[in-house]
């Protein structure tokens, strides 16, 4: 009985993931092309035109320095946006009810949507990495750290997107958080500069930005340089993931935004 329930749950999870991945690929013009275009522009303008005047940062050319930051920026944005728009869409079109009436437990629903966001995040990361390689050489100093940080970051922001979608009542609610919170935090999270360039006060303020830890851990994986301790970064990321997962599970169990 229990084994078959577990198997059934796994099949349900798999079904959500397939559905989500098919969605990402079906609307690739909305999901994969925009980050490729905007990141190419970032590389040309910031890395190429402006970067050549900036000189070195952290011991690397400016282009090489911002490449990991830009990859992370894309991962954060795309995993978040994927889940928030897909889950909100299923609420808006009422087909979330297909899942609600099924015996699939809520934690599996969360994991399924989360995995969809992770897959999109990783796909975009690969795409941007390939684009980056046209502009600069990237080493891979700590491959394991690089890969694990990128996946964990995608997990974290997928969960964030899910919570946003659970609360969202109209389409505007889907764009507010990415525009007013995510983008500023990303820009201030050390994507374009080392925080050592900032006055001490602003360095400390920057340390309150969780994205700083992810960007730097990822940069450490690729270039071997970081503004912060890697252990701290992992601890913060894992803590956030745990918190967001529990919170989203609680929301779904309560039926927030889904059941009246």
């Amino acid at each position: 009985m229990h084994v078959s329930r577990l198997r059934a749950n796994y099949i349900g999870f798999q079904t959500i993931v397939i559905k989500e991945v098919v969605r990402v690929l079906r609307i690739w013009i909305q999901t994969l092309v925009p980050p490729a275009i905007s990141m190419t522009l970032y590389f040309i303008i910031f890395g190429g035109l402006i970067g050549s005047r900036v000189g070195q940062m952290g011991g690397y050319s400016y282009m090489a320095y911002i490449a990991p930051g830009l990859i992370m920026m894309s991962v954060i944005n795309n995993s978040y946006v994927n889940v928030v728009s897909s889950f909100f869409g299923s609420k808006f079109g009422h087909y979330i009810e297909e899942l609600q009436v099924s015996p699939l437990p809520n934690y599996m629903i969360i994991l399924g949507y989360m995995m969809g966001g992770v897959v999109r995040g990783i796909l975009v990361a690969i795409l941007i990495t390939i684009i980056a390689l046209f502009f600069t050489r990237l080493h891979l100093v700590h491959p394991l750290i690089t890969v694990s940080v990128v996946i964990l970051t995608a997990v974290l922001f997928s969960l964030g997107g899910l919570i946003n979608a659970i609360y969202a009542k109209k389409f505007d609610d889907v764009t507010i958080i990415p525009t007013f919170i995510l983008t500023p935090l990303t820009y201030l999270g050390g994507v374009f500069y080392s925080i050592h360039l900032l006055p001490v006060f602003w360095q400390n303020v920057s340390r309150l930005d969780p994205i700083l830890y992810m960007v730097n851990a990822f940069r450490y994986g690729i270039l071997g340089v970081s503004d912060i301790g890697i252990g701290t970064a992992y601890a913060i990321i894992l803590l956030f993931i745990l918190g967001l997962f529990c919170f989203s599970l609680w929301l779904l169990n309560k039926g927030v935004g889904l059941r009246s």
Binding site: I11, G12, Q14, T15, I16, I18, E98, P103
Partner: peptide, 8 residues
């Protein structure tokens, strides 16, 4: 997909 959600 609906079959999948039911574990089929």
């Amino acid at each position: 997909n609906q079959a999948g959600f039911y574990g089929i």
